[in-house]
Amino acid sequence: MEMRVVNSMNYEEFVSVFGNVVEKCPLIAAAVWTSRPFTSLCALEKNIGDFIDSLPRSGKEGILRCHPNLAGRDLLQGTLSPESLSEQNRAGLTSLTAGQRSQLSELNASYKNRFNFPFVICARMNDRDTIIQQLSSRIRNSPEQELQISIGEVKNICHLRLLDISIQVSQATKL
């Protein structure tokens, strides 16, 4: 990605392009925009990560609450963001058996009841069996461990979404 293109974006363009690198959190893109110019995609990603890390616990939990349940209501109702739909599809979560859907639904509910935010994992880096195994395992973590792990997963998702945007912006500037 040519950073001159990113750095030349006005506020509205920047938020429009980067507003969902952290699921349903365009305010993060808005806050990071003020840190321009970025020297590289890695620098942009570091600014996002630093912003997330600077948030109090309640802010981090708020980021996690913006994420949909995996294979949950938003998927069934067709209201997932395009990014989430693609990620869940790649992980095989859009083609679960009735038994897998039921198991995942029960695990999601137990997890959310325990931690007060949905289970977050980078679906693109996992398949449905690994996701179910991780959900079963991570529910035993302490709240602090799980907050740290989940924020790490948000950063993994952000990294992959930034790479996707980089490819899209590069292709658009070649046209």
Rank of each mutant, 00 (worst) to 15 (best):
Y11T: 04
E45K: 11
E61Y: 06
V32T: 01
E23Q: 11
R73V: 14
I48Y: 01
M3C: 10
L64Y: 05
E2N: 15
P26A: 09
T34K: 15
N10G: 12
I48Q: 00
E13C: 02
G72C: 06
E2L: 12
K46G: 00
I63P: 05
S58H: 09
S40F: 06
A30S: 14
R57H: 10
S54W: 01
P68Y: 07
V6R: 01
V22D: 01
N10Q: 08
M9R: 06
I48H: 01
S58V: 13
P37H: 03
P56W: 00
M1Y: 02
Y11I: 02
W33S: 08
N47T: 08
L41G: 11
R65W: 09
K60Y: 02
R57W: 00
D74T: 08
S35K: 15
S40E: 00
E2F: 08
S8W: 00
A30Q: 10
G49D: 12
T39Q: 12
A30N: 05
P26C: 10
V32S: 01
C66N: 15
S58N: 10
W33M: 04
M1G: 14
N47I: 00
D50P: 06
V15T: 11
Y11M: 11
H67G: 03
K60Q: 15
F38C: 04
A71M: 08
E45F: 09
E45N: 10
C66T: 10
E45M: 07
R73K: 15
R65P: 09
F51A: 01
R4I: 11
N47C: 13
E61I: 14
D50H: 13
